[in-house]
Simulated scan of single mutants.
Amino acid sequence: MAGILDSVNQRTQLVGQNRLELLLFKLNGRQRFGINVFKVKEVLQCPKLTALPQRNPVIKGVANIRGQTISVIDISKAMGGRPIEQVDNSFVIISEYNRSVQGFLVNSVERIINVNWESILPPPKGAGRSNYMTAVTEIDGELVEILDVEKILDEINPVNSTVKKELMDEVSELTRVTQKPILISDDSSVARRQIQKTIESLGFEVIVTENGRQALNKLKELAELGPIQDQLSMVISDVEMPEMDGYTLTAEIRNNAALKNLHVILHTSLSGVFNKALIEKVGANDFIAKFHPDELASAVKSAL
């Protein structure tokens, strides 16, 4: 455990190589879950929690951690499972998603593993829409579920996806001239819905893909119909996605003669730790942290 606690903040060098490191943990039972280490700020023994009146029932309480008050979420209960009862023997994963810091209460933390995004696969088709997975992978002969944290957080505190009217009007003026669709790629069903609602409110049609591999295949398919600039306005892509991440997707676009002039916006929940040099290296035009509809709309306006 000490090794995990000491190394969590030093494991960012694999981003941009279509690789990631997963922190494995368990809730109630034998099933293992994973979270990208790049989003983890710290792992610690569960501190003393203070219960708040009228709090969301999946929030176990709040804790003061290094001078910051942080909500601690029982993710087992948030996903419809049994709550974690033995808080004193549990751990909290402090993470940053979508510009906010929160703690996830887990029963145990195991180890960090290094995997290739190509071995991270979309959830099985039979999993249904109510599942909380963005992806799965196999470790030691067992299936590891990678959680859709954005979905969990949105159910606790829904995100507003409405664009400010003045900005919407400004972009709509440009949309009358540029009617070409925007391709979006994101592995989170909640994030796709948020982005799609925002982009459609600006007057654009949207082509939706669920990972970088799907997006690249769709782009190549569109390019066969004619110049890609005649088919699309731009690409808005998440960074973390199964099979092919957003950095690799961007690099593939820049290395393809038929696609290289596409405007690419990387739109990710890696809000606190993104690497500007890496964004420039792979050739993305812009980077914005999830999720603020006005900032997304402004990025679209700038691209147009």
Results as ranks from 00 to 15, higher is better:
178 T>G: 00
178 T>F: 13
179 Q>L: 13
180 K>C: 07
180 K>N: 13
182 I>A: 05
182 I>R: 00
182 I>M: 00
183 L>T: 01
183 L>N: 00
184 I>W: 00
184 I>Q: 00
184 I>P: 00
185 S>H: 01
185 S>V: 07
186 D>R: 04
186 D>I: 01
187 D>L: 03
188 S>Y: 09
188 S>T: 12
188 S>V: 10
189 S>A: 14
191 A>M: 12
191 A>L: 06
191 A>S: 14
192 R>F: 10
192 R>C: 07
193 R>Y: 02
193 R>E: 12
194 Q>G: 00
195 I>C: 05
195 I>L: 08
196 Q>R: 14
196 Q>W: 03
196 Q>D: 09
196 Q>L: 05
196 Q>K: 14
197 K>C: 01
199 I>W: 03
199 I>S: 02
199 I>N: 02
199 I>F: 03
200 E>T: 10
200 E>A: 08
200 E>V: 04
201 S>G: 05
201 S>E: 03
201 S>N: 04
202 L>S: 11
202 L>E: 09
202 L>M: 10
202 L>V: 05
202 L>P: 10
203 G>I: 06
204 F>D: 01
204 F>M: 02
204 F>G: 01
204 F>H: 11
205 E>M: 08
205 E>Y: 09
206 V>A: 04
206 V>W: 07
206 V>K: 05
206 V>R: 03
207 I>K: 02
207 I>F: 07
208 V>T: 12
209 T>E: 08
209 T>V: 07
209 T>D: 06
209 T>H: 02
210 E>Q: 15
210 E>R: 15
211 N>W: 09
211 N>F: 08
212 G>C: 11
212 G>F: 07
213 R>N: 12
214 Q>P: 06
214 Q>C: 11
214 Q>V: 08
215 A>W: 06
216 L>P: 03
216 L>A: 07
217 N>F: 13
217 N>G: 11
217 N>K: 14
218 K>T: 15
218 K>Q: 15
219 L>A: 05
220 K>C: 11
220 K>S: 06
221 E>S: 15
221 E>K: 13
222 L>A: 11
222 L>G: 12
222 L>K: 10
222 L>W: 08
223 A>L: 09
223 A>Y: 04
223 A>C: 03
223 A>V: 10
225 L>K: 14
225 L>P: 00
226 G>S: 06
226 G>Q: 08
226 G>R: 03
226 G>K: 08
226 G>M: 08
226 G>L: 03
227 P>N: 01
227 P>F: 05
227 P>M: 09
229 Q>Y: 02
229 Q>P: 00
231 Q>L: 04
231 Q>N: 07
232 L>W: 01
233 S>K: 15
234 M>L: 14
235 V>R: 07
235 V>Q: 06
235 V>W: 07
236 I>V: 15
237 S>H: 11
238 D>Q: 13
239 V>L: 15
239 V>K: 00
239 V>F: 07
240 E>K: 11
240 E>C: 11
241 M>V: 13
242 P>D: 04
243 E>W: 13
243 E>P: 12
243 E>N: 15
243 E>T: 15
244 M>F: 02
244 M>P: 01
